[in-house]
Design a protein around this nucleic acid. Sequence first.
RNA 1: GGCCCCAUCAUCUAAUGGUUAGGAUUCCAGAUUUUCAUUCUGGCCAUAGGGGUUCGAAUCCCCUUGGGGUCACCA
Length: 432
Amino acid sequence: MLRFAPSPTGDMHIGNLRVALFNYILSVQREEPLLIRIEDTDQERNIPGKEKEIFEILALFGIEYQEQQFQSNNVRFHRAMALQLLQDKKAFNCFCAPETLEQKREAAKESKTAYRYDGACENLPAEAVIDNENPFTIRLKKPEHPITVIDIIKGESTFAPDDIDSFILMRADKFPTYNFACAVDDMLADVSLIIRGEDHLSNTPKQMAIHQALGYTKKIEYAHLPIILDNEGKKMSKRDDASSVKWLLEEGYLPEAISNYLILMGNKVPNEIFSLKEAVKWFDLKTLSKAPTRFDIDKLKFINREHLKGMDPKELSRYVGFADEEIGQLAKVFLEEAGTLKELRAKTGAIFAPKNVPDAFKEGYETLRDLTLKAPHFDDFDAYRDYLAKNSALSGDNFFKPLRILLTGAEHGPELGEIYTHIKNYIKEVVK
RNA sequence: GGCCCCAUCAUCUAAUGGUUAGGAUUCCAGAUUUUCAUUCUGGCCAUAGGGGUUCGAAUCCCCUUGGGGUCACCA
């Protein structure tokens, strides 16, 4: 069993999508089911409807899964496991007030040392626990030995007991913390391989410590993906537009191109342009770079353009707001200068929209428009061009600029002949 | 600051002890196209630094430097 475990607390991030993609690929390769687990145990941060958005994006990207669950439905298991750990003396009740802990953390920060739980409640006598009416959390006793994480991408890393610390399993509100819920659920779902972001690397020994305390001995494989960096080399945040899958989609990047890029980045691949289906055949976690990767929107655009070039014209035409194969062909001509659907829509839209003509070309524009309106149909651009040239007495820039604006609404663009081929049947509508 | 991870052109990567250190994206230049853009050709640009090991190091080891992640009753 593999799993993808997003929390419904914000927009789907490209980092999440990459994790989802890799989990999907590995689940297909290994012929194991994929579980989507919505981690919704933080009532305050959950955003209603986000889980629906997550499922929509998974569907849009062709990420198929076999099971889905909501972590909040598993709370009874989390509580049962916590109780067992308490009984086994692997965990203990902690009555430290949040403010007290916060003060200690501050003090640690000031003295430039790492904050560690001081064990204040670890050995409380039974009566002190029973008689205590204050709210409490449940902490796992830190492990006695170091824990080594074996990671498919990163190799081995060893964590000392002090760095794992006696961390909190159950909050005062009786809900599990992330690490506890995650560790229990992965165990219950019989997860065999966990693929997640590098930011979880330090959580892994904690979750392994929980498994050990619970007597769970199954070996789980781990793969922690290097983080995605922004242009400045910092972790991509929600503030970066490009980090939002929704934004990329709105900008006109194709799902196939986005997944292509997400699989390509920081990776060694047989060729640059490929489909998800193709990637399933050769994808290997081991070829991923260990170093963080910068998100390069230029490269994404290049890949997007390549996918657009290969798209069926009729389908492309629908994407740009028409339903005509000819317009799809026309859009492909504009792929020379446009790389996204949004840009393509602007280019093709401008052809049929009322034209904005600079004063310098106004006269020529009107002359050519009137001529075109009265002209017979020309199948061939050269014939059309010669006809206009002959009857207008315009030449050079004074001819081509207004003609280009007349036909495309822009001063620059692909060769007019190529454009003409695809709009000749609508020519009167275009110039009106 | 503690802990963990990482290090080849601006960016993403190739070269699994012996290459003129290769490719792609970006950028720039020339050619072509009766404008621009496209296209084609070409160009700029890298093994972070210092020590070892070795006949030979981008590649193995150590140190330094640099970068990133993480240190919540968030996930």
